[in-house]
Nucleic acid binder design. Structure first.
Lengths: 147, 147
DNA sequence: CTCCATGCAAAAGGTTTGCACTCCC
DNA sequence: GGGAGTGCAAACCTTTTGCATGGAG
């Protein structure tokens, strides 16, 4: 289950119409919206919602650990509600599509102690880059390159 | 090896005073400057250099593959000249310090075929998060406060 | 001599902030 | 009813762009 709203309510998160709409818009799988996209979708359901509220809410959800800020795709941050299952991202260089993918083991073991420089390592973000089936077929050898 | 300027010259890159200064400022290990920091350091040596030229030059170095754009630290992109040795980043959540770390094997094997959804995977970026020795000691169980 | 690179400044995103007003708990 | 949440708009930060000038090859 991925009921973000439910989880938030259970945490005693103060609920308003705006917050509910933002949480609803974010809920789901393979959701990686920008703040602007969240605003657009939220506005469809609640025309009076403001950009500032969207940013406030997204920032709060992020610091609650209920959504993850993804900054490795495009200039604008994206917000990923799949915060309760460890996963990584697979990004298409052609169309920007982002898929959630799941690790086989703990990716943090990939960093040996000798490479930690005394850091306490608490997390790891992995972004795979490539071409999705559609973009890979559309530009097998005439992609965005110029030798 | 670490001589970015030399490499660029060898590639027939058109050389100007501005481009030389940008390349010099970027050269080295564990260098992860923002465009603004590059501009500041470049201005010390060449006061008439402009912000637009710094951006032009950084963008060009990135598309030449001579520097890597790192977007996972803070709001501004950072530019990493260590483009010729596969590596990953270790970022301190307290002070923002970035260290280059080196993988044991090929991190791309971590993504099984069953998780590729038909994508052609061409690369992977890994960012480890944690606390550096200084920040870890300063705030062992409290938030990083800098007051 | 010919382009390409540069400088300037304005504009284009994307995000944050200050403040008065609203309304959830 | 109190204080957190909201809306509005301006400020801010980062990056891009247009155009005339200048310098590398």
């Amino acid at each position: 289950m991925s009921n973000l709203l439910e989880r938030l309510r259970r945490r005693g998160w103060r609920m308003t119409a705006q917050r509910r709409v933002v949480a609803e818009v974010l809920d789901g799988e393979h959701i990686h919206l920008t703040a602007d996209e969240v605003l657009a979708r939220a506005t469809e359901r609640l025309p009076e919602i403001s950009r500032a509220t969207v940013y406030n809410t997204l920032g709060e959800l992020a610091s609650l650990g209920e959504v993850i800020e993804v900054s490795s795709v495009g200039r604008a941050k994206r917000y990923d509600p799949n915060a309760h299952r460890a996963h990584q991202h697979l990004v298409c260089a052609g169309c920007g599509t982002v898929r959630d993918v799941h690790p086989e083991g703990d990716p943090m073991v990939g960093l040996p102690d000798t490479e930690r420089f005394g850091f306490t390592v608490t997390g790891v973000e992995i972004t795979y880059r490539g071409l999705c089936p559609v973009c890979g077929a559309a530009a097998p050898e005439e992609g965005p390159e110029s030798d």
